[in-house]
């Protein structure tokens, strides 16, 4: 009798509804987590692209200024103004994208300006993981 009182209205239907509720809760939490991760990734990609184009625009601005200075024969002073490294007829500079990446540019001035490199480089040292013992060719 006590058992009947304890379980009260908890019959097959209630158990079914409870199970459905638990399943729905699991699916909803999984769905929400995945959707938030998707949104977070989209925001990160947008921010990264915006940072790249901002750095790219800045680098293009510096390149134009250097080109104008070269035609006016004051390349050295202009390079110094933009903290560029000058080596013979090569001028290098970097525009930071974030705290880990920089847009590195190398220009050659030989009669006219030529872009030798225009690429994103990592500024932090890459530390390879040695946690897994990988076969390196020995015995």
């Amino acid at each position: 009798m006590n058992n009947r009182r304890f379980f009260g209205p908890v019959g097959l239907v209630s158990l079914g509804v409870s199970f459905a509720l638990v399943v729905m809760a699991i699916f909803s939490v999984t769905s929400l987590t995945k959707a938030r991760a998707e949104l977070s990734r989209a925001v990160t990609v947008c921010d990264a692209k915006a940072a790249f184009y901002l750095a790219d625009a800045e680098a293009a601005h510096i390149a134009r200024a250097l080109e104008a200075a070269y035609s006016e024969q004051r390349l050295e002073s202009c390079a110094e103004e933009y903290a560029c490294t000058v080596r013979e007829n090569l001028v290098s500079y970097g525009v930071p994208l974030d705290d880990r990446q920089v847009l590195a540019v190398t220009l050659r001035f030989d009669g006219e300006m030529e872009i030798l490199s225009w690429r994103v480089e990592n500024t932090q040292r890459w530390n390879p993981s040695d946690a897994i013992s990988v076969w390196t060719g020995g015995n």
Partner: peptide, 29 residues
């Protein structure tokens, strides 16, 4: 049961909105 269902539906709604925001952002990008 109704509270649980309401919370689940709300979570599904938030997930759908977040997924839609991500889709719009990606398309705009």
């Amino acid at each position: 049961f109704s509270l649980g269902a309401a919370v689940c539906l709300r979570a599904f709604g938030a997930a759908a909105k977040a997924r839609d925001d991500a889709r719009v952002r990606n398309a705009a990008m």
